[in-house]
Design a binder for these strands. Structure first.
Lengths: 232, 232
DNA sequence: GAGTGGTCTAGACCACAAT
DNA sequence: TTGTGGTCTAGACCACTCC
């Protein structure tokens, strides 16, 4: 039953000793030559295992000095799953629908950094006809001129952009806000009810494509991050 | 000036064609044999380049079917910086302090999955003496018996755990809540004010070590995620 | 100078999946 | 069946950096 590649076994062995605390941060792990001898394999195989660990920042390699166990990150980071609303709703076995609540075309403000003209859209996303997310979105018409004639009542802006304007960079901000009047009305909440706000900006080759602010009722949604150093 | 390794150059060339849109999602990129010929190098060099792209989920490799450009992350994920409070405060040039507001030792509830006994701590974190975060935390005494005698008035529980109980797995949940009475009092907010709640659970070798619920005033904090597929 | 990792070669055999 | 990636070998030379 030994189908595990040798380089994974080597990486796993080292990882386990780090996770168990046997090899503390700063500890110098065996050299590649020593590991070759220990496992009876070629140097590339050892090197591949250590390259994998280094790419996950578990170890730091330095010529001449050898490879040492990395110090744990002060600001630890974690992989957070940022949901695509439609997939999320359908993944829960519910029916997705949406309503376009507002649409205007206007000059972009300088601080928006979206070029000359933008289209501003307000969309309500529903799960089984229950309001779920209220979204305000800007799309830069300089970058995505087709957005001006796209039918966002038929296809939600997020889906349209995914199909027509793949991004190369994105930034997400997550914060808590009280629902403003319009949002509260759309989502059927009391004014000021706690909501999770997910702001997303994307760029394509350095040019701003879109900015979206998505508001979830606080009780309705969780963002989950799971991080395991042993699994990358 | 050409000190760039060949495998990076190959990976970079492919990456650029993906980022530019020249190679769309689903496009089958040249086989390893074709890339060997194109770059006049050994197969391992090509393979290393593609392995790197695959590890960043830019492409998907399948035997026989070849390597294709990955579909954009529908459930895109992003590296979110999960703050260590003390570092965060000090990083802003402010003075960090904390107050232990509550401490009890009690049997764990079954649904807490924390073994037999836990210590429950309430800590207020301050920046320049202004309340910043209210934290409720459980620590499993089966796993971390020393926590029962540790002086959490001197060292905040997060720092103590970092030094004494490195974790191997962690899960974060982010949600929005209205401040309850105790939290509102601690943070100097109105009852029900929108707050960002960061819940963190960690495990060590499969055993629950700690659970923390950290409440930030909604206006005081943002979690920022920046993601660039071209930079990993 | 010498020890360490960084890269690369020119093969080889195997595993898997599409046909 | 066969084309593709997955892994591995046994070397080689180079680059960096600590001594």
């Amino acid at each position: 039953m030994d189908h595990e590649p040798l380089h994974r076994r080597i990486a796993g062995d080292i990882e386990r000793r780090i996770a168990s605390g046997e090899w503390q941060p700063g500890f110098r792990i065996p050299t590649e030559a020593e590991l070759m001898a220990e496992y009876g394999c070629a140097r590339m195989t050892v090197s591949r295992a250590i390259t994998d660990l280094a790419s996950r920042a578990l170890v730091v390699r330095r010529r001449r000095a050898g490879t040492v166990v990395a110090h744990p990150p002060v600001h630890s980071s974690a992989l957070v799953s940022i949901p695509d609303i439609q997939s999320e709703v359908e993944g829960r076995g519910l029916t997705y629908s949406h309503r376009l609540m507002g649409r205007i075309v206007r000059p972009a403000l300088a601080e928006e950094e979206m070029g000359g003209r933008v289209i501003e859209l307000e969309t309500l996303h529903l799960a089984d006809d229950v309001p779920f997310v209220f979204e305000r979105r800007l799309i830069a018409l300089d970058v995505a001129p087709d957005a001006e004639t796209a039918d966002f009542a038929a296809q939600p802006p997020g889906g349209w952009l995914l199909a027509n304007m793949p991004w190369t960079e994105a930034e997400h901000r997550i914060s808590a806000v009280g629902a403003d009047r319009e949002t509260a009305a759309g989502l059927g909440l009391a004014d000021g009810a706690p909501c999770l706000r997910l702001e997303r900006r994307t760029w394509r080759d350095g040019q701003g494509v879109t900015q979206a602010s998505q508001i979830f009722p606080g009780g309705a949604y969780d963002l989950v991050a799971r991080f395991s150093p042993t699994k990358g």
